[in-house]
């Protein structure tokens, strides 16, 4: 299958910067502006988070932005409405990220179909296990040309990493350390894990996420993978500064001058 994600990696396989933000935060209708600014600031992939009340894999920053977004009235329905003309604005690969229950209530098949209509390229649903995806959801995703992006972690065995790789398309989300999002555990002592996964010669490119928050951590993550994902640090930046292209660009430049 080919979509904007697979095309991106064909063109470029290093120093890829993917940025996550929570849709509906800081304000309900900021979604399209944020995508526009990130895309103009030169980000390679944009991850649009749809909020969930109980985000188990997330630290305090994304818990808080999710809570605020729900209070602001964000739902999947609202999000899809906001994104319906997004492909008139940008061709940057777009990935939706959120929790399984929200997708389940929307309908797994319906979710895949509308993503394909809008031009979404992938989805990260951390609490949808690979076995469930294969049994129940894969058929819809394949039909919609939607990449399902799975996580691997320092505790993932070689055997399981290979299995996940075989079932993935797009890229693998390599969690940098044993932590929820937004943790600042040093990633330098993770070299043996990065090397171990690197040596498996997996077919999919890898992006490193969790605990990437500045140029130093970004550069270090890029040594052992095709790039990195920034989430909590960007949300914090949104919380501290008013939303404008200049501020977004300044943040992105601080990571990737």
């Amino acid at each position: 299958m080919e979509n904007r994600i697979t095309k991106l990696f064909k063109r470029k396989n290093k120093d890829i910067l993917s940025v996550y933000f929570t849709a509906g935060y800081p304000s309900l209708n900021d979604t399209v502006d944020i995508i526009d600014y990130l895309s103009k600031a030169g980000v390679d992939i944009i991850e649009v988070g749809f909020p969930f009340s109980d985000p188990l894999a997330d630290g305090p920053v994304i818990q808080e932005s999710s809570k605020k977004a729900i209070e602001n009235g964000m739902t999947l329905k609202v999000l899809f409405e906001q994104l319906k003309d997004i492909r008139k604005i940008t061709e940057v690969p777009l990935v939706l990220m959120g929790y399984h229950n929200v997708v389940l209530q929307y309908g797994e098949q319906e979710f895949a179909e509308i993503c394909s209509q809008i031009g979404i390229d992938g989805a990260i649903i951390p609490d949808m296990p690979i076995e469930y995806y294969n049994d129940r959801v894969k058929k819809y995703f394949l039909k919609s040309n939607l990449s399902k992006i799975f996580l691997i972690t320092p505790q993932t065995s070689d055997k399981r990493a290979e299995l996940i790789d075989k079932q993935s398309n797009g890229f693998l989300y390599m969690v940098s350390s044993d932590s929820v999002t937004g943790a600042n555990k040093s990633i330098s002592d993770r070299t043996s894990y990065f090397k171990r996964i690197n040596d498996l010669n997996l077919q999919n490119p890898r992006l490193t996420g969790f605990g990437i928050y500045n140029k130093e951590t970004f550069d270090s993550a890029c040594k052992y993978s095709s790039g990195a994902i920034i989430g909590s640090a960007f949300i914090k930046n949104l919380a501290e500064n008013s939303l404008s292209f200049e501020n977004v660009q300044k943040f992105i430049k601080s990571i990737k001058p």
Binding site: A57, P129, Y132, T153, T156, R160, I164
Partner: peptide, 12 residues
């Protein structure tokens, strides 16, 4: 039932 857990919890 089942086990709808993020990959981080899989080994545990």
């Amino acid at each position: 039932g089942g086990a709808f857990i993020p990959e981080m919890l899989y080994p545990n």
